[in-house]
């Protein structure tokens, strides 16, 4: 123990247990908390507890929400004929930021990865199938462009295609605003494979 206070040491341990926070950062955060006014610390800790108490998964799309169904699923302004399938709630935020998609979402809760013990039954796949009955015309698969995401895309495509619904996947290609010459070869290769006719 470096510090004279057990409580401080405990707090550093707690911070350090969070993802992407190392021991040094944890120490800095703990010292900062020590200097914060009491009411701010109370507010902060209350928010932490509120997150656990109030935030749930939407029973329709499995995005995180405080009201069930979530505001997107409940909205009458959204196009209910298109569902965009993503891996995690973070991906919903990413797509929403574009303001270009007006359909609904479905959060799988991950991707197929036998090494991590994740099979189809661990993802919200059955729940996706039950949603198809409501007049859905297109399913957009927007999964991560890695081995697991691609495999999950293939799996879902096979499952969905016989169900007379249009299945699409987002394109893989070059980031906007970058130069062709600086693109890494793997990305450029995929972009060439996915070229479109003009």
């Amino acid at each position: 123990m470096i510090f004279t206070s057990e409580t401080i040491e405990q707090l550093i341990e707690e911070f350090a247990s969070l993802p992407s926070i190392g021991r040094k950062t944890a120490q800095r955060l703990a010292m900062h908390v020590l200097k914060m006014p009491r009411e701010e610390v109370v507010k902060f800790s209350k928010t932490l507890i509120d997150v656990k108490d109030k935030v749930r998964y939407c029973t329709v799309c499995f995005n995180i929400t405080e009201s069930d169904p979530c505001s997107i699923c409940a909205s009458q302004k959204r196009n209910r004929k298109i569902i965009c399938v993503v891996e995690e709630p973070n991906d919903v935020i990413a797509v929403e930021k574009t303001h270009e998609f007006n359909g609904l979402y479905h959060v799988l809760g991950g991707a197929l990865s036998p090494l991590d013990g994740i099979g189809p039954e661990d993802l919200k796949v059955r729940e996706l199938l039950t949603r198809l009955s409501d007049d859905v015309q297109e399913i957009i698969l927007a999964l991560n462009p890695n081995v697991e995401g691609e495999t999950t895309t293939l799996y879902l495509a096979k499952l969905l295609k016989p169900l007379s619904v249009k299945v699409t996947r987002i394109a893989r290609g070059l980031p906007i605003g970058s130069d062709l010459e600086f693109a890494d070869e793997a990305t450029l290769t995929r972009a060439l494979e996915g070229r479109v006719a003009l």
Binding site: P120, T151, L154
Partner: peptide, 9 residues
């Protein structure tokens, strides 16, 4: 059924 997409990959 489980291995099918992995075969494709």
């Amino acid at each position: 059924s489980e291995i099918a997409p992995w075969n494709e990959m």
